[in-house]
């Protein structure tokens, strides 16, 4: 009997102890879940500060992708109204989020740091079509990752020096 009461009290003491501590659970959909900074979630296509897209449509992300989730079609920039610095830009850029395994190889392959994986992860939806993300969904300037961006435009960058190869 005493043992039983003792057990109850000890148990309730634990409860009491946690009652006054900081809560571990969060009010998830209303309150963002803080991820590690390098968490690999939904992708994002970044821009330079001057508004030009970083993506040059080189398809290296697509060829690096082990899940074959990325499709890129490049096109030639209009020299008067360029979409990206240089001659080529990503005319179409699609990631099939259902196929993606969030390994981050696309990020590593990207020569211009255009594609990055953000901590965002909640992309549940009701149709498969809506989970194929095009440039409309990927191309954003999220302040969360902007500090990762190399701020100067590629117009001033000498790729030979920066690239370092050969």
């Amino acid at each position: 009997m005493i043992r039983a009461v003792r057990g109850l009290v000890v148990g309730m003491l634990t409860t009491l102890k946690y009652l006054f501590r900081k809560k571990v659970t969060i009010d998830y959909p209303r309150e963002p879940y803080p991820h590690a900074e390098r968490f690999r979630g939904v992708h994002e296509l970044r821009k330079y500060d001057d508004g030009l897209e970083r993506c040059i449509g080189c398809e290296l992300c697509a060829v690096a992708c082990p899940a074959n989730a990325i499709t890129v079609i490049g096109a030639e920039n209009d020299p008067q109204k360029p979409t990206s610095p240089g001659e080529r830009y990503g005319y179409r850029y699609e990631i099939d989020m259902l196929r993606c395994i969030f390994c981050g190889w696309c990020e590593e392959a990207c020569p211009t740091d255009a594609i990055v994986l953000t901590p965002r992860f909640d992309i549940a939806d009701f149709t498969r079509e809506r989970l194929v993300f095009g440039k409309d969904k990927l191309l954003v300037n999220d302040p969360f990752t902007q500090h990762l961006a190399n701020t100067e435009s590629a117009f001033e960058t000498d790729p030979g020096v920066e690239g370092g190869a050969a």
């Binding site: 080189c58 080529r88 790729p159 030979g160 190869a165 050969a166």
Partner: peptide, 14 residues
């Protein structure tokens, strides 16, 4: 090769 690449733009991605 170093000589050929001296002024080569190395814009292989595009």
């Amino acid at each position: 090769l170093e000589f050929l690449l001296l002024n080569h733009p190395l814009d292989c991605p595009i």
